[in-house]
Amino acid sequence: MRFGTRRNLVAPPDDRCYPMHGTAACVMALTQTGASASELLHGTGIDESELMSHSRKVSYAQMQTILRNAVALSPGPEAPFEAGRRVSLASLGVWGMGMSSARTYRELADFVVRYQWVLGPMVAFELHEAGGSAWWTYTPLLVSNPHSTEYQMSMEFALCMGYRMSEIAFGPGFKALAISLRYDAPAHASLYEHFFGCPVHFGQPHDGFHFDPALLEHRLPHANAVSMAMVRAGCEVLLKKLSLRGSIEARVRELLAAQHAEKPAPDIDDIAGELKMNPRTLRRRLQEAGTSFRGLRSNVLKDQAIAYLRDTDLTQEEIAARLGFSDGSNFRQAFRRWTSRQPGDFRPKRAAGAPPDDDPEHL
């Protein structure tokens, strides 16, 4: 049994349409580990004063920039764990109110799954029940490579945040039976058992945590049926607005991101064909949603380029070929246009004595 309706587990559109409070909660929690809000927001176009605005919106492209900044600024491996545990229900706005108003953990889970997009989450949540077991699965939306530093940091933050939310809503009786993670055990693997207090299994098919299914029927201490009804009504309105803006862009981004290595990025005719619509219709629908095919394709290529630079030893010429560029020069020119930085700026720092990057302009 799986709770809720499974949605596309890809980053939704890049235009600013998600409420700011979820991002603000994450940024403020991260500042408690040493980074400043202005440093975390660098390159996003978001001013620190906008974090507290109820009217401002945020995009997934901006969230990705915040995640990259958090990785660069992290004072140590414990930082994402500590930050995740410091997110409060109150800081999550209407979504946090819904969690605290649920009558049972099962109702809380149903609320979280149904209305997760209202929060603009870093990960997509699903709850499963089978064979006398229950477990949450987490699917990161900002990065797809489980072996990357960004993926692991976002998972550490999201797991600690989700686990802490369950503890707050349920009470001290909530405990995980085991943590499952897709990636191999990092050097700081001992921190997982320290923060979660249960066995941790790496190299698994999914990310998430297992718990006793009997907890699903446990009544929660702060249940409030009136508040829950009001919150659900408000979330339905927000969800409808997001659905109207987000569905076509999310599908286009998913198709663009699914391109195979060493093949040119699909053009609008290719994507329109996959969606069984006329290219002119696709352009119009994207324009109505406040975005464009060119903009979405650039964002996908930028994200893939940064992932290759940070997580592989491929040269810039090889990355250019994988992304469909005719040569490295064209790739570097596009990369500078996307990020205002050189590709080499995203390479991990090399140890002393290591050979330099062999690409031009080290660009």
Rank of each mutant, 00 (worst) to 15 (best):
M97H: 11
A229K: 14
G208F: 00
A334P: 02
R86E: 09
S88R: 12
E48A: 13
L275T: 04
S340M: 09
I268Q: 01
C160I: 02
L286N: 01
N299W: 10
D313K: 13
A321G: 10
R114I: 08
I66A: 05
F170P: 00
Q204C: 12
R253L: 07
H147F: 10
A134Y: 00
A130K: 08
E193V: 04
M155S: 07
L256N: 01
A83V: 03
I268P: 01
A134H: 01
N145A: 05
G4T: 10
V300W: 00
A25T: 13
M155K: 02
R253I: 11
M28K: 15
G96V: 11
S88M: 05
A250R: 09
I319S: 01
G173L: 01
Q287S: 12
L89E: 08
M97S: 14
Q204N: 10
G203K: 06
A320K: 06
T149Q: 12
M228P: 04
R232E: 15
A261P: 08
R294A: 11
D345G: 04
R341N: 13
R294M: 05
E107K: 13
W95T: 02
T339L: 06
G234H: 13
E361C: 01
V252I: 02
Q62G: 04
H260M: 13
H206C: 03
R68I: 04
P348W: 09
Y308K: 05
R310Q: 15
A261G: 13
R86D: 07
A24W: 08
L314G: 07
S326N: 15
M99K: 11
G173K: 05
L40N: 05
E217G: 07
L41R: 07
S38L: 07
S133F: 03
I271Y: 00
A72V: 09
D345S: 12
L30P: 02
K175M: 08
P355W: 15
G171N: 05
E82I: 15
E193H: 07
T281K: 06
Y138H: 08
L119H: 14
S74I: 03
P140W: 03
R341G: 00
C17P: 06
L238A: 13
S59H: 13
M230F: 14
V252P: 00
R297P: 00
A185I: 03
G353I: 07
S36K: 10
T31I: 04
N224K: 00
L216Y: 06
D212C: 06
L89K: 04
A257G: 11
R297C: 09
R68F: 09
A321F: 11
Q316S: 09
S298N: 15
W117R: 09
P140L: 05
D267G: 12
I66M: 15
A72W: 09
R341E: 15
R285D: 14
R56L: 14
N224W: 04
E249T: 11
P172S: 06
M165Y: 02
P356W: 06
N278S: 10
T281P: 00
R114V: 10
V87W: 01
G324Y: 14
P360S: 02
F81W: 12
M63K: 13
E236M: 10
D358Y: 09
R322P: 08
L286V: 04
F335L: 12
A223E: 07
R336V: 01
Y192Q: 01
